[in-house]
Each structure stands twice: as C-alpha cells, then as structure tokens.
Amino acid sequence: MAQVKQDAARNRGILLRDSGPAQAAAGASDRAAGTRARRRRGREGGGFWWIVPTLYIVFLMLPIYWLINMSFKTTNEILGGFSLWPQNFTIESYVEIFTNPVWYNGYVSSITYVLINTVISVTVALPAAYAFSRYRFLGDKHLFFWLLTNRMAPPAIFALPFYQLYSAIGLFDTPWAVALAHCLFNIPLAVWILEGFMSGVPKEIDETAYIDGYSWPRFFVKIFMPLIASGIGVTAFFCFMFSWVELLLAKTLTAVDAKPIAAVMTRTASTSGYELGLLAAAGVLTIVPGAVVIWFVRNYIAKGFALGRV
C-alpha cells in the first residue's frame, strides 16, 4: 500500500515539488534516481535504450492507426484502392452510428452490463478477499484454487448451458444476464487482486481498530477500504476491462434488446454487405471507453498488473 503511494508520488514527482519539503525531497531524490537510471542505461545500451519501447509502441499503434484511417474513408474509397490517409475525409460513418438507435443502443447496453458487473464483482469480492487475506478456514486453499479455475475455464465450454440457464430463469436478453455471467471470471480475478492488496496492510491496523471499539463493518468501510482504495480502483479497472472485451458469452446471452456493441458489429458485417467504414468507426468507438479508463488508472497500472504483491 505504502509502496503504491510511493509509486504514484514518483510518477507525479514534479507536481509534488511544492506540496511540502519532505515530499519535495522525495520527489527530488526520485528524479535523481531517474537520471541515474537513464545514465546507467544510456551507457550500457549505447544511448539507444529508448528505441525498444518506441518501436514496440509504434508496432502497437499501427493497426489502430489503420482502423482510424479506415473509419474516415467512404466504403467506396476503401474498396477502391490503397492510401495511407483518407483522400475524401468523411465523418459519415460516425454520424450514422450516433443517429442510428441500433448502433448507439449497442453502446448503451454494453456499458450497462459492464458497469453492473463491475459493481457486483467488487462488492462481493471485498469481504471474500478480506477473509482470504486474514483468516484460515476449512478448505480455504481449495476454495481459492477452485475460484481461480473458473477464471481459467474456456467460455466456449459454457456458452450453450449458459444460454439454457439464463433462459430458464428468465433473464435472457437483459443486461443482467451478461453481467451475472461475466461474474464467472471477474469475481475470481477481483478476489485474487484484492487479496494481494489486502495482504499488504499490516494486521495491527485491524487489531487496533477492534480495541478502539469499531465493529467489523464500520472498521471495514471507514478504515480498511480507504487504505486499499488504489487496490479497489485497480480491481474495478480489471473487471471493467475483462467484461468489456469479452464477447462470446455476451453474444450468446443476448438477442435484440441487450445486444452489445461488438455483436451489433458482427451482425452489420454480415447483413448489410461489407461496410468497412462503418465497421471501422464502430471499432474506434469501442476503444475509446478503454482508453479513458486507462487514463484514470495510469499511475496504478504497473502495480495493478502485479496483482498488488510484488
């Protein structure tokens, strides 16, 4: 936890300069460390160490650039020839998406089930992760392993029974069906990440709070949750991410009303011919929410990927 704060501080080292002498000193020493690191790499890598990440990022951006490029072309231009940038720049595809309810409803339902799923996953995972990080109980290790196996079960196996199950309980084609189904892999993940962050909080804090007369729920909400706030943020990010990108189950569990945007895309691709411009524009718009969310958690990403316990 303290580590997270330090990392965040390091990332924002420059901002913190005038917020207090101690922090300023810390920021300065971090910057000095950074310069040292750069010098070290500079000497050993011949001054070109930055080439590797730069090339890698260029490689990552090329397909995305191509998608954006396509989204501003007319379908005729796309099929007509090859050009590195749009010759007849048009925002027609975007206008179509924002005015056609089939398209924008796809976005609304995607975001709805993703948000429901994130809230459910984090809420139920919090007490469970606390239990795993603080107590030993009958079958705890096996339970933890069983949870993880569900993170690892191929969704293709579950597609058909899921359809049957959610039809049987009358949730088929609602955002709730997808939100609940995505709990299959998001809850285990949330428990896993949160447990890592919680194990970093010393147990003395719990004990002191109990001595001070806090009840468990009050302690948990008032003291413990603020301590692992960044962990909760990272967990919510991961739940958002995996629910947002998953499609097989989302497509299986919806038909008309709750169709996610990604499924609308596949349908468009098959029914109304090959409208590449429209497809590309829709694709670009599916990347935007992800990019926004990453921006919010950028200072915690590295720590979050280590699941809180490096």
């Binding site: 947002w244 990108v245 998953e246 990604a262 990347i287 929410p289 992800g290 990019a291 990453i294």
Partner: peptide
C-alpha cells in the same frame, strides 16, 4: 491500450 480492445474488434 490493446488489452482494452474488445476481442472481436
């Protein structure tokens, strides 16, 4: 960024 692109996209 690539991690947050829906898989079919």
């Amino acid at each position: 960024l690539p991690l947050l692109v829906p898989w079919n996209v």
